[in-house]
Nucleic acid binder design. Structure first.
Lengths: 220, 220
DNA sequence: CCCGGCCAAGTTGTCAGACGTGTAATCATG
DNA sequence: CATGATTACACGTCTGACAACTTGGCCGGG
């Protein structure tokens, strides 16, 4: 799985990554079937391989599937959004707090993510915004240095990404980047409570924006 | 996946459950190989089925595997314990807080889990203690009614279970049951801060006990 | 016209068997 | 003793096939 430096990847893993990207990019629209055979055909792999990849993404929450049916991209309801943030917020606050207490953490990736977001063109596609936004948060999760936290967080982040794509929320590139910078600044200066509070506001704001902007999903 | 009431389960799902139980029960000792062919042989299923099950458990953290090698049950280090609780605590506090604010939640399962723990014989095997202990926490997680929380929590709980088995920690049946009862009581009476505080103490105590009692894993 | 069941299509569930390939340990060799 | 070849083991992947399940529509009876 890891051989310091080099990276070889199995076909299944590569397929998972490629398929995840397509899903998060909005191809495979919600409710449209993501059938094993179709995946196998598109990527020129065998059905067992496609099956393994689909199963993996079902685990991650990016697909849903019930027996003897093709998997589908879920369309997230308001309830799903609340649920997502109900778990996301405590996780993210925990990691922000730890980061602001730790001393020798590398926050370069987080910094770069902010810059990338600021430099995005205004007419960039939604998926770019979302990826840049989440890139910052993922960078923080990675910097916290907790395997389990990162695992849980990434699982959530996938669904959050989906959610943002579906509601096409655009809270404003500048505002988000500003809030990110504020959080990062607080972390760097070791101001734990301040960082936590900034993160809490940021996340609550994002959640409310999603809830307001997206009457897309009404799924019960 | 669910057909209200009845439960039909695929072979893979059944196998995952059975294998998980065996692992958590201490069969498949750490460092011993959990090879696909061996699993297939033991349970009389085909290798692809065994492969899918193993892969699933790797996802859950109950097995580790690197390319072209048999999976193994990880032996958890002190660092792993800290990591586990670093994520577990905020999740559990969030759910306890929500439970104590909600009004019409069914806490019967949690109650039953406490009783089951109290009634355990003193000479019961370790796995019974662990299962009964975690049963309470899982019941709370389920009662909170958050799909994502439950998913994340169960993933962690599996590793915690493993951890407890490996350190053979026995903090005392009575003490644990008492603390559980205290938490449940606070939840029932709607005392949010009290419930959170009781849970925090309970978890921190459990973590420290694990860290102290188990010099099993030193795996860097 | 409406309603029931039957049937066929689409998809997954599972398996058997085969071959390639990566890893680690053994062993012969200089 | 160090080095390179050999070998055993286990996984990675594919092909091909059949069974089981779900759905939707066809069709006949009421």
């Amino acid at each position: 799985m890891s051989r310091s430096g080099l990276s070889t990847v199995t076909v299944v893993d590569a397929l998972v990554e490629a398929l995840r990207e397509q899903i998060l990019d909005g191809q495979w629209p919600p409710a449209a079937p993501v059938a094993e055979v179709e995946v196998a055909r598109r990527f020129q792999v065998s059905r067992p391989t496609a099956k393994a990849a689909v199963r993996t993404l079902v685990f991650e929450g990016l697909l849903r599937q019930d027996s003897h049916h093709a998997a589908v991209v879920p369309s997230l309801s308001a309830q799903d959004i609340e649920d997502l943030y109900f778990v996301r917020i405590p996780l993210e606050l925990a990691m922000v707090e730890r980061l602001s207490q730790a001393n020798d953490v590398r926050l370069d990736d987080a910094e770069n993510a902010i810059v990338a977001l600021e430099r995005l063109a205004d007419d960039a596609v939604t998926s770019s915004f979302v990826a840049a936004d989440l890139g910052f948060h993922r960078a923080l999760a990675a910097a916290a240095g907790s395997r389990r936290l990162e695992r849980s967080y990434n699982a959530l982040a996938g669904e959050v990404h989906l959610c943002m794509m579906q509601t096409r929320q655009a809270l404003g590139r500048t505002r988000i980047a500003g809030e990110h910078r504020q959080i990062l600044q607080a972390i760097r200066s070791g101001d734990g409570p301040g960082a936590v509070e900034a993160a809490r506001r940021h996340l609550a704001g994002a959640r409310d924006a999603l809830l307001k902007s997206g009457p897309d999903g009404l799924k019960e």
